[in-house]
């Protein structure tokens, strides 16, 4: 159904964003698989996780062609943009992108995730802004029910705040097609 990569700096909540997505997706589809770059890349370096959502048996857990790329900084965008399929979706964090000419064969959406999260007083929630933008752009799942599930994900972890959902909704609102 979808081959996805989330990428960014370590510490931007890339892996968590991926875990939220599979947590929700797993309720609706047969198979999910989440893999990550681990170990030395945990802080400061590039972090990425791959997600495959499928009703078929998942073979290779590392996507070779992407339906969706979520890039939280510019180096990650450049690293993975070549792997996105024609007609695929790319969600970029406008706060951390320079002047980039986006390719025409893919659908690029930009949202100023870092600025929006900081503005909401929840700097760690830039990943949730990105998720909001992604749901709006791709329609991968029902955006409202994804929001509810996101809330309950943090409730389960015992560290939810109302601004988490707010950041997600702001991502939905402010995402702009490039």
């Amino acid at each position: 159904m979808a081959d996805i990569i989330f990428a960014g700096f370590g510490g931007q909540g890339i892996l968590t964003a991926g875990k939220i997505l599979i947590d929700v997706a797993a309720q609706h589809v047969k198979n999910i698989c989440w893999t990550s770059s681990y170990g030395a890349a945990m802080r400061g370096g590039t972090a990425s996780c791959s997600i495959i959502i499928s009703d078929e048996e998942i073979g290779n857990p590392y996507p070779e062609e992407l339906d969706i790329l979520l890039a939280m900084n510019e180096p990650s965008y450049h690293k993975f943009i070549g792997d996105v399929k024609d007609g695929g979706y790319v969600i970029v964090n406008g706060s951390l992108m320079g002047d980039v000419e986006y390719p025409k064969n893919v659908n690029v959406y930009s949202v100023d995730a870092t600025d929006i999260a900081n503005g909401a007083g929840n700097g760690r929630a830039a990943n949730l802004v990105m998720l909001g933008a992604m749901m709006k752009a791709t329609g991968l799942m029902d955006a409202d029910s994804f929001g509810e599930s996101l809330n309950s994900y943090f409730e389960k972890k015992g560290r939810n705040t109302p601004s988490n959902l707010e950041c997600y909704r702001l991502g939905m609102e402010k995402a702009e097609k490039k």
Binding site: K19, I22, A26, N31, I32, C33, W34, T35, S36, Y38, I58, P61, Y62
Partner: peptide, 10 residues
């Protein structure tokens, strides 16, 4: 292996 050990699935 590092891949099977580290991946999340159902």
């Amino acid at each position: 292996d590092g891949a099977i050990s580290q991946m999340i699935e159902k």
